[in-house]
Design a binder for these strands. Structure first.
Lengths: 152, 152
DNA sequence: ATTAATGTGTTGCATTTGCAACAATATTAT
DNA sequence: ATAATATTGTTGCAAATGCAACACATTAAT
C-alpha cells in the first residue's frame, strides 16, 4: 500500500486529527476541573484580552467562527457578567465592541494559571521540540491563510 | 502583553486554528470541483482503502467520530453504491464490516488524483519542510493519544 | 446457573454549527 | 440624487454533531 498516495496520510488530515485530540483533551479538562465556562467561551475571553477592545466581526475572524456563533458566545458571556458591550465606531461605522469586566479578568487569569500548571506537567514533547513545532505550524498556517477564503 | 501566558498562543490552540483552515480549504475544494461526495465521506472511503475490511467501531476510532455518526456516513455511502456491508465476526462477535465496491474504488482513486494534482501546485511549504512538519506532528499526536480518553 | 460486565450497532434527542436572509447604516458609482 | 455596493449585527432554519439509552450477543464472575 503506497501510503503517500492517500489523503488520510497527508499533512492536512493529520493536522485535523491532532487538533481533534487537542479539542477533546481541552473539553475534558474543563469539565473535570469544573470551570464555570466552557473552553469556547474561555477562548473568547483570552482573545479579547490579547487583542483589546474589538468589534464582533473582528472577533469572529480571530476565533474562526461565523458572526452568529460569535454573537451568541458574547451573549452568554454577557449574561454571566464576564464581559461588557458598548457602542463605538470603526471606520465611521457603528459597532459593538467588547471588554472584560473585573470578574471576567479574574476568571480568565484563574483558568489561565490552572491550565499553565496542568500543561507544564504534560509529558507530550520537550519544551524545545514544542517551540520548534509551533514555529513550523505558524509558518504553515500563514501559508494557508492566504489561500483560504473565510467568508466571515 | 506577555504572549506566552495566553492559551490562544499555545500549540494546542494554534493547531486547532490551522486545522480549521485545512478543513475549510478542503470543503471549498470539494464543492468547487463538484465531487459527488463530501470530504467527510471521502475520508471514510480512503480510510477503508488503507485499513482494509474493518467493523464500524474500529472505523469510528480511526476517523475520530462517534459510532452513530460513523453509521450514518456508511448508510449514505451504501445508498450511493460506493461501499458494501457484510456480516463477519471479530473475536467471536458478530460485526458489520465494510468494503469498497468497484464504483467506490473508482471514485476514490479519481478524487485522490485530482487532490494530488491540486496540492502539488500548492505554494504553502517546500516538500522538505512539509515532511519535517509531518513527522513532528505525528510525534505530538502520538503523545496526545496516550493522554486522551476517546470514549468511542 | 444466574448475574454482571463488555462489545457492537442503532434510535432518538438536545446541542452546536453554519449559512442564507434581513435590517440598518455608510460609502461609492452613475 | 438615486441606485448600487459594502459593513455590521441579528434572526431563523437546516444540517451536523455528540451523547445517553437501548437491543442484542458474548464473555466473565459468583
Amino acid at each position: 500500500m503506497q501510503q503517500e498516495k492517500h489523503f488520510i496520510n497527508s499533512i492536512y488530515y493529520q493536522l485535523e486529527q491532532t487538533a481533534k485530540y487537542c479539542k477533546y483533551l481541552g473539553n475534558q479538562l474543563f469539565e473535570k476541573l469544573n470551570f464555570e465556562i466552557p473552553l469556547d467561551e474561555f477562548v473568547v475571553l483570552d482573545t479579547i484580552l490579547v487583542h483589546g477592545e474589538i468589534c464582533q466581526r473582528d472577533l469572529a475572524k480571530l476565533i474562526l467562527k461565523d458572526r452568529p456563533s460569535t454573537g451568541r458566545l458574547l451573549n452568554s458571556l454577557e449574561e454571566k457578567g464576564l464581559i461588557e458591550r458598548f457602542a463605538d465606531t470603526k471606520n465611521n461605522r457603528l459597532v459593538r465592541k467588547t471588554k472584560l469586566t473585573a470578574k471576567g479578568q479574574c476568571v480568565t487569569e484563574q483558568i489561565t494559571n490552572v491550565l499553565k500548571e496542568y500543561f507544564a506537567r504534560f509529558p507530550v514533547l520537550s519544551g524545545e521540540k514544542v517551540l520548534d513545532l509551533k514555529t513550523r505550524i505558524q509558518e504553515f498556517k500563514d501559508g494557508l491563510e492566504k489561500e483560504v477564503e473565510m467568508k466571515i
